[in-house]
Design a protein around this nucleic acid. Structure first.
Lengths: 197, 197
DNA sequence: AGCGATTGATAACAGTGTTGCGATACGCTG
DNA sequence: CAGCGTATCGCAACACTGTTATCAATCGCT
C-alpha cells in the first residue's frame, strides 16, 4: 500500500483549532491556507483532502461554533417564569457571543466572503434556539404570553438579542454606554411586551 | 502644465456607482479593483488617486449608504403616538435595508474584510437614528414611556430592528415565515413593553 | 520647437485559493 | 530480499487579488 497517511482525524482537529485561533486573533482576513498549513506543519493540500477547500473549512468552524453555542444555551437553568427565563437566555446568548466573537461573526454575519451556510447546517443553527422556543411555547400555551404563533415571539426575541450583540460587537454603540445593564433592561421590556394584558 | 486630468469628480462618481452595482449584484467578494477600473474604462490607479485604496472606496460607499438610509428614515411621517411611530420607523428601516442589502451589509456587518469604519463616519451612523431618538426622548419626557435613560430605549429598538433584518438577510429565518406581519407585530410588542404601567 | 512637470496606464511585487504533477514510501509479489 | 504498484501528500504552477514603483504620454510655457 501507499505511504502512511498523515492527513488524519488528528490533523483535522489541529487545523480546526489553529484556524479558530487565527480567526479569533486577527479576524477572518487573517485566515490564509498557507499560513495555517505552515503553523501546524503540513501543506495546503491537507485542507483540501480533509475539508474540501477553504469555505468547507469555515463551514466546519460554523458547525463547531453552533455546538459551543448550543451547549451554553441549554446549560441555562430556567425558573419557569417566562420573562425571567427570556432574560437569562438572552444573557447567556450575549456571553457566548462575547466569548468568541469571530466565531459568532462566522455564524451570523457573512464575515468570510465566499462562505454560505448549507441548508443542513442552517437547520442546526435554529436547533440551537430550542430552549428559547420551548420557554415561549409553554408561556403561550399557559396564557401568560399573548396568543400569537410562538415562532413569532421566538424570532422577535432572537432578533433583539442578535441585534444588540451585533451592534455591540460592531462598535456601533455609544462609547459610554452601560451595555450590560441596558441589555438586561431591554430584554425584560421586550419580554414584558408579550405578556397578556 | 501636465496632461489634462481625467481622474476627476465625474470619474469618482462613476467608480462609486459601478462599485455599488458590482457589490449589489454578486456581493462584496465580487468587487475587484481591476474589474471595476476596466468597467468604467480607466486603470486601478484611479481608485488610488481618487480614494486612496480599496478600503477607502468602501468607506465612501459606507457613507453613501448612510446618506440614503438617513433620507428614508427622516422621510417617515410621524403621528405623535410613540408606539405607532416606532413601528413606522422600524418598517422604514427594513425597507431601506431590503432596498440595497449589500450596502446595508457594509454599514452594519463587517462584510468587507479589511474595512473598519472611521470614528467620524461611525458618528454619522448614529446621526441616522435621530428621528428614532427624538420620538423616544419625547415619549419619556411626556411620561408615556417608562422613566429610563432614552438611549437605553433607542438602542433596544435599534437592536431589535437590526437583529430582525440581519436574520432575514442572512437567511436565518424559517422558510415559511410571514416576515412582514411578524416584523410589525414584534415591533409593536417591543414598543409596548416600554409603556408606563 | 523644445523644455518641464504632472498625470495616469503599465508592469512588477507579494500575497491569496486552487489544481495538477510527481517524488515518496509503504505492502505485496516474485 | 529486490522490485513493482499505488495511494498519498508536498511542491510548484495558475489565475487572481490589492498595492506600489516606473515611465511614457501630454499639456503649458519659454
Amino acid at each position: 500500500m501507499p505511504r502512511p497517511r498523515t492527513h488524519d482525524e488528528n490533523l483535522r482537529l489541529k487545523l480546526l483549532d489553529r484556524a479558530g485561533e487565527l480567526i479569533s486573533a486577527d479576524g477572518p482576513k487573517a485566515l490564509s491556507l498557507r499560513k495555517l498549513a505552515a503553523d501546524v506543519g503540513t501543506s495546503t493540500t491537507a485542507v483540501y483532502s480533509l475539508f474540501g477547500g477553504k469555505t468547507d473549512l469555515v463551514s466546519a468552524l460554523y458547525a463547531e461554533g453552533f455546538e459551543r453555542f448550543g451547549a451554553r444555551m441549554s446549560g441555562v437553568s430556567l425558573t419557569g417564569d417566562p420573562v425571567e427565563d427570556l432574560v437569562r437566555l438572552g444573557v447567556a446568548y450575549r456571553t457566548s457571543a462575547l466569548a468568541d466573537p469571530h466565531l459568532y461573526a462566522i455564524m451570523f454575519t457573512k464575515s468570510v466572503p465566499g462562505f454560505e451556510p448549507a441548508d443542513e447546517t442552517s437547520e442546526q443553527a435554529r436547533a440551537t434556539m430550542a430552549p428559547l422556543e420551548e420557554t415561549i411555547r409553554k408561556a403561550v400555551a399557559d396564557g401568560v404570553f399573548t396568543d400569537v404563533p410562538p415562532e413569532m415571539i421566538t424570532v422577535s426575541c432572537w432578533g433583539l438579542v442578535h441585534g444588540l450583540v451585533s451592534l455591540e460587537l460592531n462598535g456601533n454603540l455609544p462609547e459610554e454606554f452601560a451595555v450590560s445593564t441596558a441589555y438586561e433592561t431591554a430584554l425584560r421590556a421586550n419580554a414584558s411586551g408579550w405578556l397578556r394584558r
